[in-house]
């Protein structure tokens, strides 16, 4: 694995911009050499997304236990017996939210999928144990129809139009060209049912990081750079002590900021700030993750470009979200 493990201070502020400029240049060649440009985008994401998640999986997972409330509501609103896919399921925290539906999670990271599987197993075993003991309680409502698999969001193995719904939370912003982000949405729409006369089709719920985070400590906002490398500092457990006085942090893991949509942006390397209660160390490896921060209206545009229609959309705590459906459905409904 080719992972940069330099301290953030060693990363010049121009690095992310350079990488992105290179990428944009690659994207511009699409018409002449689409295969080469695509391969370059893939290689870039391998280094700056896939390898990073493989490396930080346990640490990442430990900070990802709380379902994002709006996603939870969407899942609980599904009718009993619904079939849903969670594309980019990470550690699987959404898989057991509604025990009356089938949820199949996929992720590009085998390490995260293994963690998600353990989680599903645990739910299922708690259920079986409670049933055997006749105790019941919380475990009795635990989900049994959950499963996980390893797959790429642009080459999904799901039977076409077989799902009642799809969720895709904090995933599409990791795709490094607009064409790939739109293709990712197209793949989600291929998963969900088509509408028929008198019956609406399936819906895809998508969450992405917003550029407009004016109230957050990260300082990203309207008009800013949209393509960034965001560091993840892989802290060793022993080092999570009180920070020594006067030591300035260069970056941070996201443990203390895990109350977001399943993704809480850490401080970018170019504008580092110390995290209270977490002492940074020069020996902690830093992984640079690529992000495309969506500006207002951009997610809806991408849904339309992917052939979908926007059912509803909005902004919630540093994220843009959209509920999309297949275009045909809305046309027939009108």
């Amino acid at each position: 694995m080719a992972i940069s493990s330099t301290a953030p201070s060693a990363l010049p502020s121009s690095s992310a911009a350079d990488a992105v400029a290179k990428l944009t240049a690659a994207g511009a060649e699409t018409e002449t050499e689409p295969a080469a440009a695509e391969a370059e985008a893939e290689a870039y994401e391998r280094t700056h997304v896939h390898c990073v998640y493989e490396a930080i999986a346990p640490h990442f997972s430990a900070t990802r236990y709380k379902p994002w409330p709006a996603v939870g509501s969407f899942l609980r609103a599904q009718p009993p017996g619904a079939v849903g896919f969670d594309v980019g399921c990470g550690n699987g925290k959404y898989l057991g939210v509604n025990p009356e539906i089938l949820m199949v999670g996929s992720d590009r990271s085998a390490s995260l999928v293994a963690l998600a599987r353990s989680r599903c197993k645990e739910l299922q075993n708690r259920q079986a144990g409670a049933a055997a003991a006749g105790t019941g309680g919380e475990a009795r409502g635990a989900a049994v129809a959950t499963d996980v698999l390893v797959a790429d969001g642009l080459s999904l193995p799901f039977r076409e139009h077989s799902a009642d719904f799809v969720i895709c939370v904090a995933v599409i912003h990791h795709m490094s060209t607009r064409a790939r982000r739109q293709d990712a949405i197209r793949q989600l729409l291929r998963c969900v049912k088509l509408g028929e006369a008198g019956r609406t089709g399936g819906q895809a719920l998508v969450y992405v990081w917003a550029l407009e985070q004016g109230t957050s400590r990260r300082g990203w906002d309207e008009g800013g750079e949209q393509d960034l490398l965001v560091p993840w500092v892989l802290k060793s457990q022993q080092k999570q002590q009180k920070p020594p006085k006067g030591v300035k942090g260069e970056g941070t893991g996201e443990a203390s900021a895990a109350d977001k949509s399943g993704e809480a942006p850490p401080t970018p390397a170019t504008a580092a700030a110390p995290e209270p209660g977490v002492a940074p160390s020069h020996t902690d490896p830093v992984f640079q993750r690529y992000y495309h921060l969506y500006r207002k209206g951009e997610l809806e545009q991408d849904v339309l470009a992917a052939g979908g229609v926007v059912v509803s959309s909005g902004y919630e705590r540093d994220n843009w979200w959209v509920v999309a459906a297949n275009g045909l459905v809305a046309h027939e409904r009108r």
Partner: peptide, 19 residues
């Protein structure tokens, strides 16, 4: 084979989605 508690309603509800 996993030991899973039978959820009759879930099976009945899933049935129309199964090919």
């Amino acid at each position: 084979s996993d030991d899973v508690e039978l959820n009759q309603q879930l099976l009945v509800n899933l049935l129309p989605r199964i090919d």
